[in-house]
């Protein structure tokens, strides 16, 4: 159980907004697609097929200059619309329109980055529970990972499960979002509410790790 259950979703949570600063790029997986998710210099967010059309290099290893993402291998630069703008080996060449990175739909909601493989990304509104705690990988299937949060005590007590699917652990509201990376690997994002203090957040972070131990023991 968790936020989003029962909602027909076309999008998946690939990361916390907090963890991707302007002019940075990261790798993400959405529905089995390998993606490069990056922010331009004006904080605009982009999700692309993680492959430079030139030599197949993962663009998530690349770098952002201004409003362009560049491939690490040969420095080819791509505009926000995915079109190739510049080939350093041929500075005078106007790259043909046919050289372009495949783009995906991406939005931010509730402090989370959501990607769709269709053309209309949606995010879940987690209401006041949109304070980023952390993202972490579980080596198990999504269902096992989700269930583990309900089965893992916080300070000696099992968390309560609310009708919304949210959990309350030690009095702190928690939203758990899951991205199934593979059948045996799940990327979990955990949110709490803004009023929770630093010490409690650190305790919740350790509770997430305890849930991971439970899940990975079960999957082993």
């Amino acid at each position: 159980m968790g936020v989003g259950v029962g909602v027909r979703m076309n999008s998946v949570a690939v990361g916390l907004s907090r963890d991707l600063a302007p002019k940075r790029v990261m790798r993400a997986v959405a529905y089995g697609h390998d993606l490069a998710v990056w922010r331009d210099g004006e904080n605009g967010l982009h999700a692309w097929d993680n492959r430079c059309p030139h030599r197949g290099m993962r663009l998530s290893h690349g770098f952002v200059r201004g409003d362009r993402l560049a491939c690490l291998y040969h420095g080819w630069q791509y505009r926000k619309d995915g079109g190739c703008a510049y080939i350093p080996a041929h500075p005078g060449l106007e790259p043909p329109e046919t050289i372009r990175a495949q783009t995906y739909s991406v939005i931010e909601k509730s402090g989370v980055i959501w990607v769709s493989t269709g053309n209309d990304a949606q995010g879940v509104d987690t209401g006041p529970v949109s304070e980023p705690l952390r993202s972490l990988t579980f080596f198990c299937a999504e269902a096992i990972a989700r269930a583990a949060f309900e089965d893992t005590p916080f300070a000696g007590n099992l968390p309560q499960v609310e009708s919304t699917g949210r959990l309350v652990a030690g009095g702190h509201p928690v939203a758990v979002l899951a991205n199934p990376v593979t059948e045996s690997e799940t990327l979990i994002h955990v949110l709490t509410s803004a009023g929770v203090g630093i010490a409690a957040k650190k305790a919740l972070s350790r509770w997430c790790e305890a849930a991971r131990s439970v899940a990975e023991r079960q999957a082993a």
């Binding site: 991707l20 790798r27 997986v29 952390r134 993202s135 990327l187």
Partner: peptide, 9 residues
């Protein structure tokens, strides 16, 4: 490093 955002940053 994909699953380790704090390490990445």
């Amino acid at each position: 490093h994909d699953g380790y955002p704090a390490i990445r940053n």
